[in-house]
């Protein structure tokens, strides 16, 4: 029983990682007032870039850089549309998702001819699991042993990076000048403008930060969790991350808990498949899959707290003509 729990939690951590990275990515963007439903596309683009380059170079780190670069590129398109051209941010996000889905499959087929996949990564092409010091020694200690050896140890570097990114994001947001301005521009861009700060440059930086984190999230999928890119491998994770962001009310620590919750639901769904719950029977796996969205809708409905987005989110900034 305890072992099952540890194993479920262990896969929760693995499944939460890409959600968390993408969720924090969305947090930077939306806190600055740029709504981003293109998290999915940026992750997918990054996953492909990372998978392809890691295969060609045989180096996961170079792959990661490539993944981040692709994601930033897509983020800049979103920025160009929504900041410079004051276009509709939702439409732009939809376009990014289409572009990424099409281009990754198309280029994947052209370059590798494996039905849109990138070839399987070997050795250093992939991020390996890191065994924390002393993990093997304490493995047999009751309770603490499995927690340390299974749950905390034995993940790849990106998992640790994701969880470190949570306090870092909090610190950036609430303890730095950049964070103060970022939060301000998402609430009242006119206040930022009249304070002599460029709204445009500030929002571009937020969008780039979003690109970097989405790059990490996508790369995790193709060169850490799996050994290569598979067509459409994000499978809606970008949208679950978006749901988690709303669920977390745009706060970093809550984002982590929301992603862990949604990751846990995913892990449970896998574990529960084909199993009878006493008194209820088999719970369909689709129920677990839909649960993050259902929970978010319930939250949005205001039945469990109230999710109020940054006030200026989604509204292009235009100097008022008085």
């Amino acid at each position: 029983m305890f072992e099952t729990l540890i194993l479920t939690l262990d896969s929760t951590v693995r499944l939460s990682t890409p959600l968390l990275l993408a969720c924090l990515a969305g947090l930077y963007s939306e806190r600055s007032g740029i709504v981003d439903i293109g998290l999915e596309g940026k992750m997918l683009g990054a996953a492909f870039g990372a998978g392809a380059v890691a295969y060609i170079t045989g180096n996961a780190w170079i792959g990661l850089m490539a993944g981040i670069a692709v994601s930033i590129g897509l983020a800049l398109i979103h920025g160009f549309a929504s900041i410079t051209n004051r276009g509709n941010q939702i439409v732009s996000g939809v376009a990014i998702n289409f572009l990424a889905a099409g281009l990754t499959a198309l280029l994947g087929q052209t370059w590798f001819s494996q039905g849109g996949r990138t070839p399987s990564l070997q050795g250093d092409g992939r991020f390996r699991d890191i065994v924390l010091p002393g993990a093997e020694q304490v493995r047999d200690v009751p309770i603490i042993g499995p927690i340390y050896a299974e749950l905390l140890s034995g993940h790849n570097i990106l998992v640790y990076a994701a969880f470190v990114a949570v306090p870092v994001t909090w610190w950036v947001l609430f303890r730095t000048r950049f964070g103060l301005r970022l939060r301000a521009v998402g609430e009242n861009p006119a206040a930022v403008d009249t304070a002599g700060i460029s709204v445009t440059w500030l929002r571009y930086r937020a969008v780039i930060a979003c690109g970097i984190l989405c790059g990490l999230a996508g790369s995790y999928l193709s060169i850490a969790q799996s050994a290569g890119f598979i067509k459409d491998m994000t499978a809606g994770k970008g949208f679950i991350a978006l749901a988690a962001l709303i669920f977390a009310k745009w706060r970093p620590a809550s984002a982590m808990f929301a992603c862990l919750l949604f990751g846990f639901l995913d892990a449970t769904a896998i574990r529960m498949q084909g199993q009878e719950v006493p008194g209820i029977g088999e719970i369909p796996v689709q129920f677990f899959q839909a649960l993050p969205y259902i929970l978010t809708v319930i939250l949005l409905a205001g039945f469990i707290g109230k999710a109020i987005p940054p006030k200026a989110a989604g509204i292009p900034y235009l100097k008022e003509r008085s």
Partner: peptide, 29 residues
């Protein structure tokens, strides 16, 4: 300038509003 429609961030503290744009350094403290 004191604008007709205040250029304030509603969910900021007074202090945060005052320093916005005049923060001295990259760290806020």
């Amino acid at each position: 300038m004191v604008h007709q429609h205040f250029m304030l961030v509603d969910n900021f503290t007074v202090l945060e509003n005052v320093v916005l744009g005049a923060e001295d350094s990259a760290l806020l403290a």
